[in-house]
């Protein structure tokens, strides 16, 4: 090996290192550009009037009121449906299912469901909830559709945190003559709870930002009222943003940006809560 060759090889290695670092930081910078662009375009529209007004043909009168309430309704119902079912499914798979063929099938099925495009869930919701069950274009139909969409996320996250509960705890409880459900309720669930909560929050952020399934079930209508019950029609934050962004006028684009600021603020807040829970748990385990 000649020294010249060695020098060249080291130069290549350095260049490669530099390249990898550059693209990585470019990705980080991109997030900055995106956030800056959105804030810059939207911040001047962000005021109390914007949050308290209903949608309007006139940009200066338009606001997010019905969208915010719609999202709140949607997420509350979605969580109420999907969290108990998702956690129960995770517990079944980890604590009861064993390694049989059926468990294996369910497992593969969940992994693949997580990869189904969200618009396909929208079509499912349209046919099953809106039409077949006759829920119409209601909050109920929307949240049931959204529940199916985020169930795989909740199940996968809950399974991971249930699996992380040490086996020695289960053994100790079984050796005291506990039944399986007693072991799960008193020891597995409490220990897994922080991880499950983190997963639930992530799934909720997914549901808050999802747009396509709601468009499919027909949430994109001009809604100038706040839903009063699960059977009412509704709009939601991302739908409103989509609506404004798809109009040609500059002012509506800026409204969309303002809506995005609100949406991202909500998501960021939820992420902060998730990070806080994770941090508390790690501290607790020390």
């Amino acid at each position: 090996m000649t020294p010249g060759n060695a020098l060249r090889r080291h130069a290549i290695a350095k260049a490669f290192h530099f390249l990898c670092a550059t693209v990585t930081w470019a990705g980080v910078a991109l997030l900055g550009v995106l956030l800056f662009h959105v804030s810059y375009s939207g911040f001047m529209w962000l005021d109390g009037q914007f949050l308290s007004s209903f949608p309007s043909r006139f940009p200066e009168k338009a606001g997010l009121n019905s969208a915010l309430w719609g999202t709140l309704w949607l997420i509350t119902l979605t969580v109420a449906f999907s969290v108990p079912i998702g956690v129960a499914a995770a517990i079944y798979l980890e604590e009861y299912g064993g390694k049989g063929k059926l468990s294996r099938l369910i497992e593969v099925n969940i992994a693949n469901l997580a990869g189904v495009p969200s618009i396909v869930y929208g079509i499912l919701g349209l046919v099953v909830f809106v039409r077949f069950f006759g829920f119409g274009r209601s909050v109920l139909a929307g949240s049931l559709t959204m529940s199916l969409l985020i169930l795989p996320v909740i199940i996968i996250a809950s399974r991971e945190s249930v699996r992380a509960v040490p086996g020695s705890i289960r053994q100790a409880a079984f050796a005291l003559g506990a039944t399986r459900w007693q072991v799960v309720r008193s020891h597995v669930l409490p220990s897994a709870l922080p991880g499950i909560l983190t997963g639930v929050i992530l799934a909720m952020s997914r549901a808050i930002g999802e747009t396509a399934p709601l468009i499919m079930i027909g949430a994109l209508t001009y809604i100038a009222f706040v839903p009063n019950g699960p059977m009412d029609a509704f709009t939601a934050l991302p739908i409103q943003i989509f609506n404004w962004a798809s109009r040609p006028q500059q002012e509506f684009h800026q409204l969309a940006a303002a809506g995005i600021i609100v949406l991202l603020a909500v998501l960021l807040l939820m992420n902060a809560v998730a990070v806080f829970i994770r941090y508390r748990t790690e501290e607790g385990n020390k």
Partner: peptide, 17 residues
Amino acid sequence: VLAGIPTVVYGYFALTF
């Protein structure tokens, strides 16, 4: 965070930036 940004936001970013 990038992974958690809703797709409609990316749509807006594409259109206006």
